[in-house]
C-alpha cells in the first residue's frame, strides 16, 4: 500500500521520469513561493479528483469517460481558484492564467485514466498524494535553482532569504523563459546519466 505513495516521489516522478505537466513546471518556477503554491493546488485537485473518479468508476459510461473526468477536475480547479483568490491574492496574481490551466495538466487526467478508474479509493488517494508531492518536489527544486541563480534570493511564505555573493550579480537569464528550458534540460540529462549508470 505504501508503495502507491512512494512511487510518485522518485521512481515514477511525473516531471523528471514520465515528463508530464511541463507547462506549469516551466512557467511557475520563477520563485520558490510560486512553486509551492502551484504544488499545493495540484495536490488538492489530484487527490480530490482521484477520490471522486475512483468512487464513480462504476457509474461513468466508458465512451464519455474523458469529458466526465474533465468536469470533475474542472470543478475542483474552480474551488482552488476561488480559495486562492480570496486568501492569497498575491499568489493568484503571480500564477495568473496557470491556475485555471491546472485543468489541462496532463498529470491529473493521466492519473485518473491510468490509476483511479481501476483502483479502490484508498490506493487512489495515496497515488494522488504521491504523484502530487513528487510534482511539488520537482517543481520546487527547479524553482530553487532558478531563483538562487537568477535573482540571488529564496522567497518562502513570510520571509525572503538573500543569498550572499550571488545576489550582487545574479545570472538574470536563468529567471527568463530561456533559463527555465535550460535548467530543465540539464536536470533531465542528469537523471538520464544516473539512470544509465545503474
Amino acid at each position: 500500500m505504501i508503495k502507491e505513495f512512494t512511487k510518485g516521489l522518485f521512481k515514477e516522478n511525473p516531471i523528471f521520469v514520465i515528463a508530464l505537466g511541463l507547462c506549469p513546471t516551466l512557467a511557475t518556477s520563477t520563485m520558490v513561493i510560486n512553486a509551492l503554491g502551484m504544488g499545493a493546488g495540484v495536490i488538492f485537485v489530484l487527490v480530490c479528483s482521484n477520490i471522486f473518479i475512483s468512487l464513480l468508476k462504476n457509474f461513468i459510461p466508458d465512451n464519455v469517460r474523458i469529458p466526465a473526468y474533465i468536469v470533475v477536475i474542472a470543478s475542483f480547479v474552480t474551488i482552488v481558484q476561488m480559495v486562492m483568490e480570496a486568501y492569497a491574492p498575491a499568489l493568484y496574481a503571480a500564477l495568473g492564467v496557470f491556475v485555471p490551466l491546472i485543468v489541462v495538466n496532463c498529470i491529473i487526467l493521466g492519473r485518473a485514466e491510468a490509476f483511479a478508474n481501476k483502483n479502490k479509493v484508498l490506493p487512489s488517494i495515496l497515488d494522488g498524494l504521491g504523484m502530487g508531492v513528487g510534482f511539488t518536489l520537482a517543481l520546487t527544486l527547479i524553482a530553487l535553482i532558478r531563483e538562487v541563480l537568477g535573482s540571488g534570493t529564496i522567497t518562502l511564505p513570510g520571509c525572503v532569504i538573500t543569498v550572499p555573493v550571488i545576489s550582487i550579480a545574479p545570472m538574470r537569464v536563468i529567471a527568463f523563459p530561456a533559463g527555465a528550458l535550460l535548467v530543465l534540460g540539464l536536470l533531465k540529462a542528469f537523471f538520464q546519466y544516473k539512470e544509465g549508470r545503474k
Binding site: 527568463f176 523563459p177 530561456a178 528550458l181 534540460g185 533531465k188 542528469f190 538520464q192 546519466y193 544509465g196
Partner: peptide
C-alpha cells in the same frame, strides 16, 4: 553525449531558441 540524447537536448535547443 549519451545523457543528453532525446528529451534533454530538445530542451536545451528550445532554450537557445527562446534566447
Amino acid at each position: 553525449p549519451k545523457p543528453f540524447k532525446g528529451v534533454p537536448i530538445a530542451f536545451i535547443t528550445a532554450s537557445l531558441m527562446a534566447l
